[in-house]
Write a protein that binds this DNA or RNA. Sequence first.
DNA 1: TAGATTGTTAATCGATTAACAATC
DNA 2: TAGATTGTTAATCGATTAACAATC
Lengths: 216, 216
Amino acid sequence: METKNSNYRISSAVIKRLPRYFRYLRELLEGGRMRISSGELSKMMNVTASQIRQDLNCFGGFGQQGYGYNVKYLYGKISEILGVEQGYKAVIIGAGHLGLALVGSPMFAKRGVTLSALFDNSTELVGGEYGNLHIYDISELEAYIKENGINIAVLTLPRAYAKEMAERLKNLGVKGIWNFTNIELNFEDSDTVVQNVHIGDSLMQLTYRMNSNEEK
Amino acid sequence: METKNSNYRISSAVIKRLPRYFRYLRELLEGGRMRISSGELSKMMNVTASQIRQDLNCFGGFGQQGYGYNVKYLYGKISEILGVEQGYKAVIIGAGHLGLALVGSPMFAKRGVTLSALFDNSTELVGGEYGNLHIYDISELEAYIKENGINIAVLTLPRAYAKEMAERLKNLGVKGIWNFTNIELNFEDSDTVVQNVHIGDSLMQLTYRMNSNEEK
DNA sequence: TAGATTGTTAATCGATTAACAATC
DNA sequence: TAGATTGTTAATCGATTAACAATC
């Protein structure tokens, strides 16, 4: 990427905000908007204009004084930063409801990730199709991943299998694991990164807020 | 709740960490562990002991000098803070794969939330059952929610319906909306709280990290 | 040119960590 | 009592906001 300062570490506070910029810019783009100022975007997103300018400047000067930001250009830059242009390829491991829900969603396509196949260990499911994706037996995992250059594995299998499966995937050279089991996986110092999803934590934030609302 | 300082605002940094404490404490409890020190917990969780003590002290002195924290007691306190003891009752709106995946998960039960029913607008699904839950027609929503004292609605319906449905729920007096559609809902100054889940943001964090890993 | 808005530095604010007295 | 570990204050660190010169 030819953005500035590729070396110094971007704070995780900034990283967590990037996907939200991506979403808002996409909407602006789809709405046919050509340009946007940090001031106007800040109102839409309920953050300060200062923060937006600071965040973007971690990666480079994407705007123009007196003009603002070109929506299409900025969207492209953010996409680049987030790896959307990399054309990552993913498989889903576990063809239960959650796996199938993910197949049915436009989320991956919008983010430049191509879903390639499903895997399961149930003989009932294996051999079937869902949303144009074939469901393979889990024993075919090694061959499939190597042949198809898969970078990402989505874990939607029972948590009991998660750790073992993650190891297997790391050894296969899969570079990203998106983990929906409620286990916290992590590979320190590995070049396989794990993103743990704790959907229950979100439910807890909701109930916390409901609860503290009530006290007033 | 009889914890200290119920009045002053807890920072959102702390709130976001609470569910993780809840998870770790639960595991300790299930493992039969009686007590834990901030030092040991900090090693398990990869945070500083200082942070743990600070976080817990926002709500009260749950430990004991020279001893540490009683696991069961602390778990109880955290549960209280997070609203787990409130016995919230939830319905799921949208009986697609995502909705059904949630029904099948122990997540709600573990967090003190009782799933009560599913709603959908598809005549094929309405009248059916899934995981002991009845699937009602969406037209029955008003009556059902009032009769059954539902506090939480989980939105797993197509995003096009989300905004309208959220309004409807707010007017029905539902106190919490857990929104899985990719829309950002918010009710300022309402006593209905919305928790937006942006699962795609998590995917983007994964691809960001994969991408920045590659640059090295 | 004048107006607008960025990029960036400096100031502020808040969150994290360190340290230690209190106390079990 | 001695040892351990909390609760809490103070110090540090980092993130956010404000301000403004640069510049389109």
